[in-house]
């Protein structure tokens, strides 16, 4: 058995080990390669930047805890960007498990940083089942869908919600998601109610989103951890996505290396079998 045959039948646990090392080392020894901006990330940043100060924006936390590494840095950077412009933020989640809890934790953390007051500068609506019905319902009345906020306070008691009754009072929807709800924000809320929608999604979902982007149905896109790192760079507050970029770089390079080795083995074997014939 020559080396190529051995490599072809390699125990996949060796590959797992290599992957583990390629993620671990850059996490410990951070190099911070320069992050270049993509036009779609810039488009999202500019869309928010061009909104008038103090305008009302909806930020969704449509993700499970499993995708936190990719999506949470997007939410954090978005909150920092919006509060730097003194915007009013309404958060909600279409995910029952995780989303509302994460929204509560993240918004309160960043609010402290900017000295923002709950009920005046931001409100967490929490979760309501049936996202399609929720998205339609918010167009006529937020209060009819969410009579109370996440902690059970009636919306009538929250000053911000006296000014915001439906989509007409909002300027932008910033959707951070790890699932298909983003399709509905585009196809229902943007298409039927005309409010601009920008999104931050996981890397796996990003290629599909380009269809919406190219069609002008989506205003800007952040794809995976790289997208989050780009937004962090534009906001000027480096976070976990920027730190994670080195690990991601190494793991991508490892996969490319593995693909090359795999193909070399494939060609060697093919040459050998042709020679044998």
């Amino acid at each position: 058995m020559d080396i190529w045959e051995k490599l072809d039948g390699i125990d996949r646990r060796w590959i797992y080990l290599l992957m583990f090392i390629s993620v671990l080392i850059p996490t410990i020894f951070v190099v911070k390669f320069p992050i270049e901006l993509t036009p779609e990330a810039e488009q999202l940043y500019n869309a928010v930047e061009e909104l008038p100060d103090s305008s009302v924006i909806m930020l969704t936390f449509d993700y499970y805890a499993s995708a936190l590494a990719e999506t949470e840095p997007m939410s954090i950077a978005a909150l920092r960007h919006m509060w730097r412009k003194d915007m009013k933020i309404i958060t909600l989640s279409n995910i029952p498990l995780g989303g509302p809890t994460i929204a509560e934790r993240v918004t309160r953390e960043i609010a402290e940083e900017f000295g923002k007051v709950y009920g005046v500068d931001f409100v967490n609506l929490g979760y309501k089942a049936n996202y399609v019905a929720v998205m339609h319902g918010l167009a006529s009345s937020i209060e009819s869908i969410f009579p109370t906020d996440y902690s059970g306070t009636p919306l009538a008691e929250l000053p911000l919600m006296q000014e915001v009754k439906n989509y007409d009072d909002m300027t932008f929807i910033y959707c951070v998601a790890d699932n298909a709800t983003v399709d509905y924000w585009v196809s229902i809320v943007n298409a039927q109610y005309g409010i601009p929608v920008g999104a931050g999604v996981t890397a796996v979902m990003a290629p599909k989103m380009y269809s919406f982007l190219e069609a002008g149905q989506m205003t800007g896109l952040l794809g995976g951890m790289k997208g989050a790192a780009e937004y962090e760079k534009m906001v000027g507050a480096l976070g976990t996505a920027t730190i994670g970029m080195d690990a991601q770089s190494m793991s991508h390079l490892l996969i490319i290396f593995l693909v090359i080795v795999g193909n070399l083995g494939f060609f060697m074997k093919r040459r050998k079998s042709k020679g044998a014939e």
Binding site: R12, I15, Y16, M19, S251, L254, I255, L258, V259
Partner: peptide, 14 residues
């Protein structure tokens, strides 16, 4: 990440 690496090594052939 681990599964992608092993699938790419095994299946991505020219």
């Amino acid at each position: 990440a681990f599964y992608i690496a092993s699938a790419a090594y095994r299946a991505f052939r020219a």
